[in-house]
Every structure is written in C-alpha cells, then in structure tokens.
Design a protein around this nucleic acid. Structure first.
Lengths: 229, 229
DNA sequence: CTGCGTCAGATCGTATACAATATCCGCTCA
DNA sequence: TGAGCGGATATTGTATACGATCTGACGCAG
C-alpha cells in the first residue's frame, strides 16, 4: 500500500479524499486492510487524524470498521451492490432531467472536456483513472442540476459503485461504454429533458447489465468462511 | 439542555442516537450549540467519545461543525429543505411500491400498531414523540421493502425533515395528516403496488405543501446577522 | 504428529494533557 | 461616548500515553 498513495497532506479530509481516490481507481482493492499506524506513517500524521479519516469513510460506506480488528476497504455483498445501482437508478434520471433544464454553454464545454480526458485515459489504457473520470461525470450532472444534497449522496454511491465494479465486473478489459455519456451531453445541450432522463435511465441499466449480480455465492468463498456459523 | 436529555449511555453510537432523537422530537432546536464539555457531563464520558458522536451526526447532516467554533444542530437553508423533500420524493414512492409487493401480515400488524401509537401521541398532544413516530413510519416502509441502503439513507433524510419542519412549518399546532399513512397501509395489505406508490407520492407532496418554502429570507433574521457582510 | 494452552507482540480503543484558537470583558484613548 | 485594543477565560484541535483485545507462535502433552 505504501507505493499506492501519493502522501503529503495533513488533514483528515485530505487523507479521506486520497483514500477515496485510491479506492475509486482500484489501487485499493475491496477487503484491503488499512492499518492505522501504516496510514500514519504514509501521511505523517497522528492516529487521531487517521482515525477521523477512517471513520469518515466508514460513514460513506467505503470502509468497514470491525471493533478491535481494524478498518478494511468495504466489500459490498451482492445485495448491497444491487441496492447501490437501484438507488442510483432512482435519483440519477431526475438529475439528468434537471440538468437538461439548467445546463449553460459553460457546463456543456466542461462536460466535453471531461469526456475527452476520459477518452484519453481509455486510449492510454489507464483503467483506474478512466474509471474515476467516468464516475465523476455522473457527479457533475448532479452539480449542474444544482442539487447539492444529491451531489453529495451521489459521490458516495459512485465511489461504492467502483467497489462493486471491482468485485462483480464481468469483462475485466472492457470499459464502460462512453457513447451514452456523449449522447447525454447532446441531450443536455439541446435542453431535451425527456431524452436526457431516458438516456440516463438506460445508461444505468447498461452498467447494471455488465455486472454479474446473480445470486451465486460471493465469488470463491473459503471453506472456513462458509462454515463460520 | 441538561434537562432535555435522558443521560446514561456510554458509547458514541448511543449518544448520537439520543441526540438524534432529541432533534427529531424538537427538544433540540436548529442552531442549538452542542458544547463538548456539556455533553461530556451529561453522559459521563470523555470528550473522545463525544467528538465521535458529533462527527457522526455531522456526516448524517444533523449537525454542523465549524472549525474552532463547535458543533451546532443543523439549520437547513430553504434550498437544502427543498432538496431533502425532493430526494425523498424520488426514493420513497419506489419503496412504497416494493413494500406493497413484500409486506407480510406481520409487517402490516406492526405498521398498524405503529400508527396507533402515533395517534395516541397526537391525542395526548405530545407533539415531539408524534413527529418522531410519524417519521419512523416512513423508515419502516423502506425496511419492509428490504432495502437496507435506502433505509439508512431515509433515516437521515427523515431526521433532517424534522429540522426542516422545526424551521418552516406553517401551522404550529396542526400535525401531519395521518390518514394517508392509514390508506398506505391498506394499499400495502392489498399488495396494490401502483396505489401504494401514488399514495406515497401524494403524501410527500402534502407534507411539502404544509411547509413554507417560498423564497423569502431565511425566517426572521436579526439586523446584526443581516448586516454582517 | 496433532491439538491445545499460554505468552509475547501487534493493533485498536479511550482518556488525558497540552497547544491553538476564539470569545468575552474591561481598559484606554480619541 | 464609542471604537479599538489587549489579556484572561473558555472552548476546540491534536498528540500521546495507557489499557484492552486480538493474533500468531511456541512448546508441551496426548
């Protein structure tokens, strides 16, 4: 893990942000242990601060803290994974609609630049950064819709989606189809709210389809775990 | 504040729960300051624990922490207030639908008992407890829908709704019309998903209508505050 | 050789001490 | 009289020390 993070900052919020980014970009895998002392060493801060950051991430659903055991990058179950995408399906189409009614030329330009960066990352096969940019795109829609509460909520859901993808993505090498992002931006530019809403709904469904969320046991379960009451 | 809380527990989670309940029942008003030492005295724990609880409540949007200033019960702006109810309107109808498809006789009985308790509280004019029970009703729908993520999310939104009500409720003495709760339970009993969804949608709209969320300055602002740059 | 108990090290949880910052009050001076 | 300025006090922020719990290894008995 030492090599995985950039190190430098000092506040709990910054540490949480860097850990979030690492999770989002799959540099930290679900289930990875986050030892307090280790994080202290990396960021050169006291445990007080690190614990603040870890608790913050726990509230956001990115980290699971087991008493007297430690903090681990969360490992969403199949049910939790489904719930994340179900919740997104409930709120994001409405955000796309609202964004279509509010988007300024400046917003559109920003989204286009964003998509270009995403495409560049894909071309360079930088899977992690591409994934993060793809997620951020969705958050930006909420920002354009000027809905702060959902923007905050969506940040969490998108980050958790990254965990779900790490666990349940079917084709490891195929990345999220970015064409729906592009057509969404077109709908936003035209102020076509109905279309934007539909595209977003379909896009989330597409994402869901690329996941393997069938009712199988959570991947390879060790005998030990299977028998643990 | 000393009289307002029951005191006794020891863990951060329990303290957060009691503070949440106090906020939910309007025993703690928006803007109320929560001094760490005071909370320590009340619950007889160290500041470490109290700070954990306060940070937890901050993540849930119930408390605002200003650096070097302290923790205050949150005071949602008009925009935030609208956003809370908009978000609820996006997710709760879907929960009502799902609950209609899953509710067992046991669930129905539980909801009926819940409504009875709510009615009793209203009859006794215990406004706070009635408000809390009314909010819990909505959380129970999500529980019956077996959607843990949204249940958790809704707990936060419902608690924040209590803050919104404290700030923007029009008729102080009139309580939420509980007849829609009753008709919702009927729809759930019949397994009528479409109807349940519609009732919930209408119910949330009703709630919104009882609020004064017009674009006026945030209630009575003191001259001092109004002039402070 | 296997199972179990015990002990040492590692790790987390909590309390407390100290530092940083804000707030309040009284003072001075225009 | 009132605005501006310390300084004492109150309050929060951070680091650290200590205690509790878990983990893994070792050794002994069966």
């Amino acid at each position: 893990m030492s090599v995985i993070l950039k190190a430098k900052p000092a506040t709990a919020a910054e540490i949480a942000a860097q850990l979030t980014e690492a999770i989002h970009e799959h540099r930290l895998q679900p289930g990875a242990k986050l030892r307090e002392d280790e994080v202290c060493d990396i960021f050169q801060v006291s445990r007080t601060i690190v614990r603040q950051a870890l608790h913050s991430l726990e509230h956001k659903g990115l980290v699971t803290i087991l008493r007297n055991k430690g903090a681990f990058v969360a490992k969403p179950s199949l049910k939790e994974a489904r719930e994340v995408f179900e919740t997104r399906s409930l709120i994001e189409p409405a955000m796309a609609r609202a964004a279509a009614l509010r988007a300024t030329p400046h917003d559109i330009a920003f989204l286009e630049a964003h998509m270009k960066a995403e495409q560049d990352a894909i071309d360079r096969e930088e899977v992690g950064p591409a994934l993060k940019l793809s997620g951020d795109f969705h958050v930006q829609i909420a920002r354009i819709a000027d809905h702060h509460l959902i923007e905050t909520l969506l940040k969490q859901l998108v980050a958790r989606s990254a965990l779900v993808i790490a666990l349940y993505w079917r084709r490891r090498n195929a990345l999220c189809d970015s064409s729906s992002h592009s057509s969404l931006v077109n709908a936003l530019r035209d102020g076509d709210a109905d279309n934007a809403e539909e595209i977003m709904k379909g896009h989330l469904l597409d994402l869901l389809m690329q996941l393997d969320l069938r009712d199988s046991p959570t991947g390879p379960v060790s005998l030990r775990d299977a028998l643990k009451k």
